[in-house]
């Protein structure tokens, strides 16, 4: 493991990912990232069992399902406790390519940015059209509510500096978490870079019930609005 990678912690929230979680972790490890934290968000399938068979992985388990935002936050808290300098978050369904981790962490390690946001929409080749519309609507709402325009406000593939995660304080437990991070970047005037990433849309990732569907999108928008007035 290179010295550079030893400062990087990878956080993977996972909920009912028994089919792919092993391959996702092994793929990340193949890029010589060994500080891996997987948060099993109260999975009801055999995700926990699959994770227990893996070496060199810190597995944390939510006793009950609390949502992607809550699981990501738990992973980030753990990384902070373990002394991480750079924290990368990516999804547990295999849609993110670990090859892009180096691109995301580079501006953080070079201290050119506090946060690196992976963006699918700078080069959306292969992205389903409904996902593009969905994400653009998410961007518009995020900009309207939180005041910062980014090209992919819903991407879960991001990298943070230690200083950034010390400041960022989110309340959203579910998909609104991603937009809340944008709000925190704006509030604390954190520097950020948008890095084009490759996303692998497989039948598996597209057919998962808990993914960002239209109904979930409406619910997320409702939660974002609610948190502004509540």
């Amino acid at each position: 493991m290179s010295d550079k990678n030893s400062r990087i912690f990878i956080v993977v929230p996972a909920y009912n990912e028994e089919a792919v979680i092993e391959s996702v972790i092994r793929e990340i490890q193949s890029y010589h990232y060994s500080n891996l934290i997987v948060v099993d968000d109260g999975s009801t399938d055999r995700t926990a069992e699959r994770l227990s068979s893996l070496d060199r992985v810190i597995t944390l388990r939510h006793r009950i399902n609390r949502g992607k935002g809550a699981a990501t936050k738990t992973g980030i808290e753990a990384a902070k406790l373990l002394g991480a300098d750079v924290i990368v978050t990516l999804d547990g369904d295999g849609q993110h390519d670990p090859a892009d981790i180096a691109k995301l962490t580079l501006p953080i390690l070079q201290k050119r940015a506090d946060v690196a946001l992976g963006t699918r929409l700078i080069n959306p080749a292969g992205m389903p059209w409904h996902k593009i519309i969905h994400n653009k609507l998410g961007n518009l709402l995020t900009w309207y509510l939180f005041g910062l325009w980014v090209t992919d406000s819903q991407s879960g593939f991001r990298a943070y500096s230690r200083q950034a995660v010390e400041k960022i304080n989110t309340r959203g437990d579910r998909y609104e978490y991603e937009s809340e991070v944008i709000r925190e970047i704006y509030i604390y005037k954190l520097t950020f870079k948008e890095i084009p990433i490759r996303v692998r849309y497989t039948d598996y990732s597209m057919n998962k019930a808990q993914k960002q569907s239209f109904c979930n999108g409406v619910r997320t928008a409702g939660k974002m609005l609610w948190k502004l007035i509540a």
Binding site: H62, R63, I64, A70, E77, L82, R171, W226, K227, A230
Partner: peptide, 28 residues
């Protein structure tokens, strides 16, 4: 709705604390 929201956040916080209890036992 405000009370439910507060409860949800408390549940998440408790769940997180409970999950992080296992952290020192893990070694890379």
């Amino acid at each position: 709705l405000s009370a439910i929201e507060r409860l949800e956040q408390n549940i998440s916080e408790l769940t997180r604390k409970e999950a992080l209890k296992d952290l020192p036992k893990n070694n890379l």
